[in-house]
Design a protein around this nucleic acid. Structure first.
Ligand SMILES: [Mn+2]
Ligand SMILES: [Mn+2]
Ligand SMILES: [Zn+2]
Ligand SMILES: [Zn+2]
Lengths: 132, 132
DNA sequence: TCCATTTTTGTAATCATTACAAAGTATGGT
DNA sequence: ACCATACTTTGTAATGATTACAAAAATGGA
């Protein structure tokens, strides 16, 4: 995927090998991974990879807005290459996180009118169709 | 507030002194406090109070469903005596968390139909009316 | 009062994340 | 190619919130 490399450049991120690989992982695996999931998947192919690099890189992606952060459980930060406004559903049995392609920013919430809103987050929890 | 004591009993929670004080704090201060905020506010009046007790008690409240948990930032767990389905707005300047009294469970989200949903969470971030 | 059960407490352990500085790598001018 | 400089990666240590655990304290009934 030369795609990933170009995407990084357009946002002013120098496309180092690690950054490309981490971004490719996010693009290909739409499973909302944690830092640890990304690290464990990549380290066999990049033996020198440091978990710190994964943290640094993801924080850079968030800052440059090519990825978004998903916080559903305390101490389980997940990442998403999809930066559009959308929501998630997490199954408490299989722990899978599903996408919900709904733009909540289009729903009118009068109480928000007086504030200046920059981020929209929503998620649901329960048991998914496959687990019951 | 004898109120708090009765509320605990009806949910099968023995109303110990610490539990009553922590629950009263949640009822009176609708500011979505962290464990640390609750602890620091109560410890002058209950010098023997342990932070572990605050953690244990809040986990019990969540389990017995007399309080709900609010996760907006990673490693900043907040608690709310309001267990109804409602949302929040957090100001990134003054860090205040506002209530949004909207029941998202009433909004139809087709993608959720196939799953069994038990929890609804939503929050927004930005700058509040007082901070701009 | 005695005993069993529950609750509280303090300390240590855990775990995710960040801080930091050293080592490695790329870049651009000479 | 050489060097200086800036950027990136890495490993280790520090941080901070939460939980585990076991001892101490409180409760409540026989
Ligand atoms: Mn997503
Ligand atoms: Mn609330
Ligand atoms: Zn499932
Ligand atoms: Zn504000």
């Amino acid at each position: 995927m030369e795609n990933a490399c170009k995407h990084l450049k357009t946002r002013g991120i120098k496309p180092s090998y690690q950054r490309i690989k981490i971004f490719e992982y996010l693009l290909r695996n739409r499973n909302h991974p944690t830092v640890d999931m990304i690290y464990r998947k990549l380290v066999p192919r990049i033996p020198t990879l440091s978990k710190t690099t994964v943290y640094n890189t993801l924080n850079l992606f968030i800052e440059k807005e090519i990825a978004s952060i998903i916080i559903i459980e305390e101490n389980e930060t997940r990442y998403d290459a999809d930066t559009s406004v959308h929501g998630h559903f997490k199954c408490r049995k299989c722990t899978k996180v599903y996408d919900l392609d709904i733009d909540l920013s289009k729903i009118d919430i009068p109480m928000l009118a007086e504030h200046s809103v920059t981020e929209h987050h929503f998620y649901f929890k329960g048991i998914c169709k496959n687990c019951r």
